[in-house]
């Protein structure tokens, strides 16, 4: 590649931390905080149900729970419970993008709680299970083994 004029300015750790909202499957990037499904129900009903429907289905936006049709059926349901391979993705996506009308408005505890609520609604965790940076990465999702790499040579070992 051609050489550039090297105009990049150093990024301080604090600035990186403010910017960096990626959560990896192994939990890297999870912030402090915690929540349970019971706490999350209040968040969900107030800020999510209008679009996603009561209990995560039947709204105008994507179905988040209640998927029953297996992936091999004629009308497969691709929901968190039936399709998503990592719990980290639920936390990551909600924190970065939801609620659609006010992204980045939830506190970390609210994100943990509503994530727990959706995992519970999908039958993955119990309603009092505490979700935090330590417990979330340990969750094994039902469809964790459901993906094949089109380019296996690119898969990290």
């Amino acid at each position: 590649a051609p050489e550039g004029p090297r105009l990049g300015q150093p990024l301080e750790a604090a600035a990186i931390s403010a910017l960096d909202i990626t959560v990896f499957p192994d939990g890297t990037g999870l912030p402090p905080g915690q929540g349970t499904a019971v706490e999350g129900k209040a968040v969900y009903d107030a800020k999510c149900a209008a679009c996603h429907g009561p209990n995560g289905s039947g709204g105008s936006a994507e179905e988040l729970a209640g998927g029953r049709n297996p992936l091999t059926s004629a009308e497969p349901d691709k929901t968190i419970g039936t399709y998503w391979p990592y719990a980290s993705t639920v936390f990551d996506f909600i924190r970065r993008a939801m609620p659609l009308d006010a992204p980045r408005s939830l506190g970390n505890d609210e994100v943990y709680a509503v994530t727990a609520y959706l995992l519970h609604a999908n039958g993955i965790i119990g309603e009092h299970d505490r979700l935090d940076a330590a417990t979330l990465p340990k969750i094994r999702m039902p469809n964790a083994a459901g993906f094949v790499w089109v380019y296996p040579e690119r898969q990290p070992r």
């Binding site: 750790a13 604090a14 931390s17 403010a18 910017l19 192994d26 912030p31 402090p32 659609l100 980045r104």
Partner: peptide
């Protein structure tokens, strides 16, 4: 990987100090 985790988690408190730009918080 440890490096990333420490950076991300340890400084999460101060992160709130730099809010995202308005175009990331409104449709």
């Amino acid at each position: 990987k440890a490096g990333l985790a420490v950076t991300g988690a340890a400084l999460a408190g101060t992160a709130q100090a730099v809010p995202p730009p308005p175009w990331m918080t409104r449709p």
